[in-house]
């Protein structure tokens, strides 16, 4: 399954912090955008001449989609083009395409309490989660870490909406999020949600695991951008085609550029939709996803083509 594409217009762009822009989209034909649940993301498709960018962004609310969808985009120095394109070329009125929302970072409403932890731009899904929890009258608290006051995009808005339930930590004021202190003493039945830089996510999940929290109570939004590497060939066994994967593109991007429709959804190694059986591999597989188990990665008979690649010459897929 690949989710439906919706043509939209950029309705509003606002610079909310250093290198962070908040964008609002409304549907191009004026119809109402589909309702979505807190934690959902959308894939934004942008055309830059012959180049095609497809990036996943969390929808940050409001959950009442009548007002349109809002995302926040951080311009990163390591951007492969997508976030730079948003910052430099999109303007109010620009036409782009988004996918219908998909939720891989859902609230578990069986919880007695929700502990929301965000670092930097990772605050975006947390904002829609807090909005939903507030609406439902559920117990929650937010811990939000940013580097400087200029990078803390939504501190004021969060404090205004959720008051003392928000704790903000600002690194340049020597305020640090002490995960052990935050996790310690949480009541039985607490679910944890973390979004931010990969290092932070891993650290929080590891500490929770070390404190005996069950895996079912730990939720993270892991989006990985495909890493570049040496070029190689992908052979598609069913259609008997060979496609070159260049250094700076993923297998999925190479297939799409060649007109092959491969199943995909999140494009970030999280959802499992693009799991593809490997028939043979001349080289070593570099698994970069968060979906396959360690055993599956070791077995080497499947690959998530949106983020993983091989170091070698030829990969034969059952496609």
């Amino acid at each position: 399954m690949t989710s439906a594409e919706i043509p939209v217009l950029v309705d509003r762009i606002e610079t909310v912090a250093q290198d962070i822009k908040r964008l609002r989209f409304v549907s191009a034909d004026g119809s109402r955008l589909p309702t979505y649940s807190a934690g959902s993301h959308t894939i934004l498709t942008m055309r830059d001449g012959s180049k095609l960018y497809r990036n996943a962004y969390s929808l940050m609310g409001p959950l009442d989609s009548e007002a349109g969808y809002e995302i926040s985009v951080l311009k990163t120095p390591t951007s492969r083009g997508g976030s730079r394109f948003v910052h430099d070329y999109l303007h109010e009125g620009s036409a782009v395409t988004i996918s219908s929302p998909v939720n891989l970072f859902e609230l578990d409403l069986r919880a007695r309490k929700h502990l929301l932890i965000a670092g930097g731009i990772g605050i975006t899904p947390i904002m829609s989660m807090a909005e939903q929890l507030e609406k439902l009258g559920r117990l929650f608290e937010i811990h939000y870490a940013t580097r400087t006051s200029r990078s803390g995009a939504y501190v004021g808005e969060l404090k205004r909406k959720f008051g003392a339930r928000v704790r903000h930590y600002q690194t340049d004021r020597s305020e640090f999020l002490d995960t052990d202190v935050v996790l310690c003493g949480q009541p039985l039945g607490t679910h944890l949600y973390v979004c931010g830089p990969a290092g932070m996510i891993n650290d929080v999940l590891q500490r929770a695991d070390h404190m005996g929290w069950p895996s079912q109570h730990l939720h993270a939004e892991h989006f990985t951008a495909p890493r570049s590497g040496a070029p190689f060939d992908v052979e598609l066994a069913k259609t008997n085609r060979t496609i070159r994967v260049q250094a700076d593109e993923s297998i999925l991007q190479a297939l799409e550029a060649a007109g092959v429709e491969a199943p995909c959804l999140c494009r970030g190694g999280a959802c499992g939709q693009c799991e593809t059986p490997i028939l043979s591999c001349n080289g070593s597989i570099q698994h970069e996803d968060h979906y396959l188990t360690d055993e599956e990665k070791k077995a080497g008979d499947k690959i998530m083509i949106c983020v993983s690649r091989i170091q070698g010459s030829r990969l034969t897929l059952d496609l």
Binding site: D108, R110, A111, R112, K113, P187, L188, G189, T190, H191, P214, S215, Q216, H217
Partner: peptide
Amino acid sequence: AQAYGMDPQS
């Protein structure tokens, strides 16, 4: 356990 917010699988 579920009434106390714990996942049954835990």
